[in-house]
Design a protein around this nucleic acid. Sequence first.
RNA 1: GCAGGGGUUCCAGAGUGGUCAAAUGGGCGGGACUCAAAAUCCCGUGGUUCAGGCCUUCGAGAGUUCGAGCCUCUCCCCCUGCACCA
Length: 825
Amino acid sequence: MAEFVNFKEIDVKWQEAWEKEKIFQVSDQSKKPKYYVLDMFPYPSGAGLHMGHAFTYTLGDIYTRFKRLQGFNVLYPIGYDSLGLPAENAAIKNNTHPEDYTKKSIANFMKQQKAMGWSYDWSRALKTSDPEFYKWDQWIFLQMLEKGIAYRKKAPVNYCPKCESVLANEQVVNGKCWRHEDTDIEIKHLEQWFYNITKYVEPLLQGLEKLDWPERAKVLQKNWIGKSFGTEVIFNINNEDWKVFTTRPDTLYGVTFLVISAQHNRLFDLVTKEQKSKVEEFLKKLKSVSEKELENLEKEGVFTGAYAINPLTKEKVPVYAGNFVVADYASGMVMAVPSHDQRDFEFAKKYGINIKVVIQNKENNLDSKTMQRAYTENGILVNSEKFNGLNNRAAIDTITEYLQHMSLGKKTVQYKLRDWLISRQRYWGTPIPVVYCDKCGIVPLNAKDLPVTLPKDVKFGQGNPLKTNDSWVNTTCPKCKGKARRETDTMDTFVNSSWYYLRYCDPKNSKEIFDSSKVNHWCPIDQYIGGPEHITMHLIYIRFYTKVLHDLGLINFDEPALRYFTQGIVKAADGERMSKSRGNVIEPLDTIEKFGADALRFYLISNASPDKDVIWTDSGMQSSHKFIGKVYSFFENIRFGKDSEKFEHKINKTLKEFFDDVQNFKYNVSTIKLRALFETMQNEKTISKESANKYIQMLHVFCPHITEELWNRFGNKGFISQSTFDKVNESKINLKFDKEDQAIENLSEDLGKILKVIQDKRDNSISKAFVYVIPNELELLKDVSSIEKKTNLTIKVFAVNDKAKYDPENKAGKAKSNKPAIHLE
RNA sequence: GCAGGGGUUCCAGAGUGGUCAAAUGGGCGGGACUCAAAAUCCCGUGGUUCAGGCCUUCGAGAGUUCGAGCCUCUCCCCCUGCACCA
């Protein structure tokens, strides 16, 4: 009975044994093939483990245990993404130092992680707030600087007033901060550190092809990178060439104005004296608008006073500054064709700008004076001089070639991906290892002087805390030994997670970032597991870093993770996210206390495919608990005997399917098959120890504690955690047994239906059933005891050609294949 | 708008050409046990009833096929992501 089993006790017993024997420590040297499973490391918050953690890390642990039992030498490390703003903010709130806060959080986390039975190699644990770790962030930065990948520039950047820091493009979600859904991003023009990720845009795009990732993840990254083909057209403004990117050079003759981004850093080069005040007024208004809803922002603009010359028509068209043009995409300036682009059309109507039709089609005769909206379909060029009559699709190439020929433009490619802004004006991050020297300017530190550690003594509350420690800020220039000032910005926390997976391969190396041979042995990650929210942030950065480190010759692969699995979310019973404010949170630790870690693990994966959301139900949780209890008590005092042939068939077949299902994360399907097999097992007279071992090995990946206990009770040597699966014995798999089951089930069903009808009509006097089958099906029904038990009938089965059969009603003739005839009395 | 993923029986969720009225779990109904309840166990759970049948179901419609939940097309709906990217 489930109640009598003290799961908690078993959990702790084996968790301690595993730890004591260090059985999950993995050696770099092994005869076994390597396998690297990685869960994205957690951000250690003071709140501890939540159900989402319990779910995602259990998925990884199951996969790891599965791979171990398959005979792989599995690297399964864990660490803490412990630098970052939330720790800083939480510390400020609790009036402690981020370092103390983080230390406490990690200790708490670790305890809880162990209670889940996750089989990490704790000897490799790392935390990013450790100077021995972030030292290498700084080292990588210096490498990047040397290669020109790290650089400083003044640019319009996203600033979150709540974070009091700038953000990367990836961290802006719908114009808001990724951490503060209620906070609008402000655009500031600041000089900041960037990583030149756009240099790697093509490898990032092409690398996707060879990855075994969910389609969704690949598409998301593709869209984020946003490659588009087009033409760069040169417009002359005030005797200066300005490049404008367009995907529609076929409409070039219809350009009636240009729009430059209001955030463009050269905007005022164009603004005339007369228009200056109007433009400034417009910009002021823009700022207040950005604090409201960005979504339905109307397209607005203001005339700059400048005119551009259309390279083909030589016409002069006005240049406007507009709020809808993205400053740092392409050249930050667009050509506007109101007749064939709806946005441009609305803008032209609003400001009374000329409209010129250049594409016509036979059915509709467009007239610029009467048209109600832009015509965006295809057609034939008109008003386009020598290109008149061309199909507009064809004209895209023709006109581009002509521009190229005349040196007025060229074919080009644009991407949405921007360079990665890594500066943060906050304390709890990796210090950027440069100084500002009055004489030498920006000077990087020497690698031997790393790490630049965070000073503990700083004041929080106003601006960047690092600026408050003068003795830290004031330093000497490594070049001229003169006075210098340290960079007080720290790095985006995402730099840490961009290469942590490499450090796990050689976590204690104090001489170099890692031993390349170790990293090349373990990497790339064979199976990476994490949430979908990381696809356009972390997973872009980690791929970028990998490519950079590859090009630096440090590693011999250029993709971090070949396979990636995205898990779903654990939702509360009401279908909402679990949250304190909703009061619907179920705590993993409470659940373990009540049901044991195995039952929780089993429950979390038995509901649905793990890439789907799990909706928590107490009854489901209880059902898993019940099942685990039944299995445990079944085996607890079992006496082994022999397997029936049928059972040998079943266990081998299940094992075979199990390999396939678990390999493909169909954990839920596996749990069902284990339930079914358990039912069969209960009806067997005896089973062998070998089969029992097979069964608990399968169950072990989901429920490591009770299976460890049973393994031990069975008298096996060593740990089940370190055992390996037997090969599937294909010769024992005989589909005959499945047919037999099918035949029994069919007959049982038929009898049931007949009895139901009869019993309604007559009284219950039926006690015997005579069954007539076609001869070659006779042996499928040789054991009908289960049906006899169920129906309370005595059953006799005959072959139809059996001369000695009892068949008073002469039913035997009705027997068909898979459909025996039946006589009841 | 664009892209991706989906719509399965009361719910969750398996299932991708025949043995599918469709696994499994939950819920619900019935039964056993009990003085009773809880727990546990067994049975049932689209309709209908004629002895194992018949009819209707897997978002809607059309098609391919001897045969479709599963393949093709069109449409509807839901979720997710990007969103003024020129």
